[in-house]
Design a protein around this nucleic acid. Structure first.
Length: 295
DNA sequence: CACCAGGCAAGCC
DNA sequence: GGCTTGCATGGT
């Protein structure tokens, strides 16, 4: 079935896109800036623009937006040019019961193409943290230091620029309650502004080069760099191993025998290859839905 | 109260 | 190289 888009008043209707389920996209831990908004809808901000997205009868609606914003921002943000049916077909082609189950649970997952700067800071904040609090901290960062705009009569905030954050003191930044991560955020912003860290240059690097460059940033290690590669740089082969992935992989593929992160990474690279990041998202969603390995 | 949360840096060997 | 420990904060 091929996707079709229609303009209806100030809305964009997306028809015939079955590989898009809003809770799968926005509750699989890749994005911290979209929240549920009534039944079957989410509202959030990216690239300085806010949009409400709802679904009904297999149709997805982007509310109060323009065709320009759809073409310039949301089409790519929602990764609408990629064929996820084909990805799911390849991932389950070997008859792997684990991937079949994972894909069944998260059949509407898509990997969002998020802004690199926002992804870098968001995943620095994610370290040793939980998702509700990550969202809270990022929300405070935006409402305190981002630019405001109105959408459907309410005020929303963009993600603050490196320049805005770089000029803050640690004490001023402490209002976001980021804990020990605050110094990483400030250091990163200042080095992006000074040019010591060149995010634009990282975009055109090979994946191993980009990973090395990211890990030079204070507060970014192995796992966080893999998340940034996947969510901010479109490197779909990147397979971040966090506590959830470690648990679900050990449970499903290693008979619950504890493994090192290195072993799991190598297993995933061998098994999923170029689609590692996609597999990771299905597994992450599946693990959390079914609370696999949680006592 | 202890323990944990999408880990990481620094200090040890 | 690999292994241990401290780390801010908020929730259970």
């Amino acid at each position: 079935m091929s996707m079709e888009t229609k303009i209806v008043n100030n809305d964009i209707h997306i028809i015939g896109q079955d590989d898009l389920v809003l809770p799968h996209v926005f509750d699989c831990g890749q994005c911290f800036r979209f929240d549920p908004c009534g039944e079957n809808a989410y509202i959030g901000t990216a690239f300085g623009k806010t949009v409400k997205i709802s679904s009904e009868n297999g149709k997805t609606i982007l509310h109060d937006t323009s065709i320009e914003d759809f073409n310039n921002v949301w089409y790519d943000y929602l990764d609408l040019g990629r064929d996820y049916s084909e990805i799911k077909r390849v991932l389950t082609a070997g008859g792997d019961p684990v991937m079949e189950k994972a894909v069944e649970y998260g059949k509407g997952i898509r990997i969002l193409n998020q802004e690199l700067w926002e992804t870098v800071i968001s995943f620095i904040i994610s370290a040793s943290n939980n998702i509700p609090r990550i969202k809270k901290i990022i929300g405070l960062l935006c409402s305190n230091f981002g630019e405001s705009h109105t959408y459907q009569g309410s005020v929303y905030y963009s993600f603050p620029s490196p320049e805005r954050i770089a000029q803050l003191s640690l004490e001023e930044l402490s209002v976001i309650r980021a804990g020990f991560r605050d110094k990483y955020i400030l250091d990163c912003a200042r080095k992006v502004v000074s040019g010591e860290t060149d995010l634009e240059a990282i975009k055109s690097m090979t994946t191993p080069e980009a990973k090395k460059a990211l890990m030079n940033i204070w507060g970014i290690g192995n796992k966080v760099s893999d998340c940034i590669l996947l969510f901010g740089l479109g490197r779909c082969d990147s397979f971040p191993v966090d506590v959830w992935i470690k648990r679900v992989m050990e449970y499903c593929y290693f008979d619950s025998v504890p493994q090192t992160i290195k072993t799991i990474s190598e297993f995933a690279e061998d098994k999923f290859g170029e689609l590692g990041g996609m597999a990771q998202q299905y597994l992450f969603f599946y693990a959390r839905e079914c609370r696999i390995g949680v006592k």
